[in-house]
Nucleic acid binder design. Sequence first.
DNA 1: AAAGAATGCGCC
DNA 2: AGGGCGCATTCTTT
Length: 585
Amino acid sequence: MHIVLGPAPGAAASEHWLPVVVRDDGMERLAPVPAAALPGLVRDLPGRLGTDPDRVRWVFASVSAGYRPLLEAEVPISRCWDLGLCQRIVSTAAGVTYSPAVDVPVPDPEPWLRQPPATRPDQGTFFDLPAGGRGRQEVPPAEDLARELVAQLAAVDRSGAPHRLRLLLAAESQGALIAAEILHEGLPWRRDLHEAMLAEQLGPRPAEGQRPRLLQELAERIGGTLGVPGLNPDSPQDLLRGLNLAGVRVGSTRAGDLKGWASEGGPDAPRRTALISGVLEYKHLYRLWTANGWHWLDEWVQDGRFHPAYSVGGVVTGRWAAHGGGAMQVPAAVRDAVRADPGHLLTVADASQVEPRILAAMSGDRALAEAGSGSDLYLAVAEQGRRAGSELAERSRAKVALLGAMYGATTGDSAALIPHLRRLYPHAMGLLEQAAQRGEAGGQVSTWLGRTSPAPGQQWLTATADVSTAEAESRSRTLRRSAGRFTRNFVIQGTAAEWALCWMGEIRRRLRQGTPDGQARDPLQTRLVFFVHDEVVLHGPAEEADAVRRIVTEAAQAAGRMLFGAAPVGFPLSVAAVESYAGAH
DNA sequence: AAAGAATGCGCC
DNA sequence: AGGGCGCATTCTTT
């Protein structure tokens, strides 16, 4: 059963809500309720309708905008449908006939601190954009949303693979719930430890507009070493000039270029290293300062929590993006500030080698699936390579080759190994090459569950059609190859993102359901608090850690079965229950 | 002066 | 001429 929650006709979403019950046999409007009564409605309505609350799918225009008051009132929602996110998928999915009833835009996710719940004067309003934002978001009235739901459900039913598409939409919607819950819960973050790390590496917090002391000293030292007093290492141009003046023959100031220059010095290497070591150290500290320094702490860590603002499906492939705060790239250098509360533990679970496993499962390549049945796929590939007498016989080469195949490498070691891969895994390589060919031809590809890559733009079509001169032809070829690399990677990255969504969804479901084999089926107190592509972090009472380990492990296998049925590919994890995030890897 | 592009880092 | 991203800063263009 679906229950659509949207604004009552003529009312703002912040004022009155109209629940519309959508069943197979039609719709039923219920009485509108004031916004403040919404949590009570969600608690009571399933009982009044004689339905198990877990069987209701609550439908929102946008979960990220509408779920928050329910979350704050601790109203449990087990299943939902996010019309905006689903519309984005359905309206671009290949092989789907869909006529929207109404446009439902996906709003920008709202960073926590720009809209702190406790200090907002108008809290309790549901669809407002952040204060000082672009004004109130238009939300279609509930009946229109209900008609839109029906349109989406019909589109799914008519699609070529309704089961898969339905799973994708359910997973995406549940992802929206999870993202909202992580934003609400936050990752435990010890400001004191973070500040101590900054002080140790950078010196005390400087006045606004000044470099930290140790960074300033380092800048002066670099100027001295290179013989260019007053050199500003923040300016790439300035730095490059200074380096060249000092005899460092590099074309850019990138750390990799500098290291490369030093290492090819032969007997001169130690002197070269001495010349650039200050610059490399400066880059490292500068990064720490600008990306995760005091400003970042002030803006993103509140009351001992970092609240990551995710954008579900924000990447075209379906991966999550982050909206501020750098949630998708908490660098190793500051992870030691992530600490479990007293009596609690962080469970950090990292899925190993997801993308080649996805490739094996999608392509049905039995040899690659065989390699993926154990815990180290790359090692198994190397063993298969050795048996076949190919050059893939080392783990490191097998890894480079497979990653290169999925990214579309055309040069270097990786590209050279591709023919060997093709012999060992014709089906897997065939899938990748077919995806690449589609892209090169200007076509689109879809993930396992049906998320479809964007069509090439007019500019691309025009530029690739022009082969009138040698130069134009070369440009056309470059563009085609680039599109091919994108579609080649899209099917893998996108399907891996689907697996991750299902994994997290299963984790959430099992946490709420309670321990799998326990007598008492009480929900666990442990919560998902962080996510990065193929890694999750949970935070909860130490005594739950064993159960949590089982849950994340079983959820990974369950996600594999949800997508691929009984395919013989496992999804092994490395799981650590730790007090500090830094101790997890 | 503001906006956009480029550079470079770091995460998966 | 290896996929995807975000972010801070500098540099360039308008």
